[in-house]
Simulated scan of single mutants.
Amino acid sequence: MAGHSRRSVIAGVAVAGATALVAGCSGGGEDPPAAQPLAGGGPGQNTAPGRRVVIGFSAPAADHGWLAAITNNARRQARALPDVEFKMVASGANAGAQRAALSTLIAERPDVIVVLPHDGKELNAFGVEAMRAGVPVVNLDRAFPDPAAFRLQIKGDNYGMGVAAARHIISRLRTRKVEQPVIAEIAGLDFLELTQERSRGFRDTLAAAGMSVANRRAAAFTADSGQREAAHLLQALPHLHAVWNHDDDQGVGVLAAVEAAKRGEFFMVGGAGSRQAMQTIQAGGTVLEATVTYSPSMASSAILLARLIAQDRGLADLAEFEVPRQLVLAAETVTRDNADDYLHFGF
């Protein structure tokens, strides 16, 4: 998908764009009935000021570039909305501490809570508690497994990231006419469901093309862990054709390990779409030639949609009265050819 289409998706979530039309089907060659006005109203309705609302927010500490962008995007978006009061609570060092802070927030009765949990399964009970107390929850990124724990769930397409990375690798290997490719994978934290989904999408897509992963290492979304695991992987595989690294922050360490080992016979696909990774792709000179997106712009969308939920409004460009229950962002492939289109979304 081109960068311009991504802008269209985000603009739709941010409630800009033309009014949608409902097209009817008819038989017998008759003209279709005229489109009826939508419940959502005309374009621009969502940007009109509404009643003042309080949006509570919690996300893990910004020890990673992507997490820092999540919090910064949420805060910046809230500040741009004159009818929103942004109330951020400390997430603590783990799921238990975040759960305690969020329970206190429930007692303060904000209009809606946006939360990126330390762990979706461990914080699921909070979501259920808040929803039962009449406080809608927007669950961001790390999913609550129980549908009763959230009003809206927004996340990236983790399985789709694996699919996109594998498709790029398959295409490049076929172009090079590599018959028995040696493919490696450097994942993130293995206990997270999102990591498992990324690996599954990667594995499934390779298998459909008759390919497989020769060696897989799990890092921890940090540059240090990426360098360590990449060094082990390079020692285990004296020759490689392609590597998928799940996360561009840990990719900084991966590239350092590649340089230290003086390896360059393979190409690499990154993950998440950091600005630094995109600029590295543009500059050339390293094994990194593409990255697949997992944009922190989802935090901005979470605030925009939380506001509409609290104000009992829907999306102006949709026929339905209410904001949808789920939003999954597309995983898109960024290369040297289209990096300029995506730099704006890099963290």
Rank of each mutant, 00 (worst) to 15 (best):
D83V: 13
R132N: 13
V114Q: 05
G96N: 09
V84E: 09
R132E: 14
P136Q: 00
I170T: 15
E85N: 04
Q153T: 11
L105R: 03
K177T: 01
R151W: 07
L152W: 13
A187E: 07
V178K: 06
M161Q: 12
Q153V: 14
K177M: 01
D111M: 00
K121E: 12
S103M: 01
G96E: 10
N139W: 11
I169M: 06
D111A: 02
V163S: 10
D83K: 06
E193R: 01
S171N: 11
R99N: 04
T104Y: 02
L173E: 05
R151P: 09
S103G: 02
V128M: 14
D157G: 11
V89D: 05
E85D: 11
D146S: 13
A143K: 10
I186R: 00
A107N: 05
Y159N: 08
A78Y: 14
N158H: 14
D111E: 05
A143C: 11
I106S: 02
V128C: 12
G160L: 14
L116C: 09
P110V: 03
L152Y: 11
G96P: 08
L192K: 04
P181S: 07
A165E: 14
D83E: 05
V178R: 08
I183W: 05
P117G: 01
D119T: 03
E179R: 01
M88D: 09
R151Q: 12
S103I: 09
P145Y: 10
V84W: 09
G162C: 11
S91R: 00
A90F: 08
V128G: 13
R176A: 15
A90Y: 07
R75C: 00
E122F: 03
A80W: 08
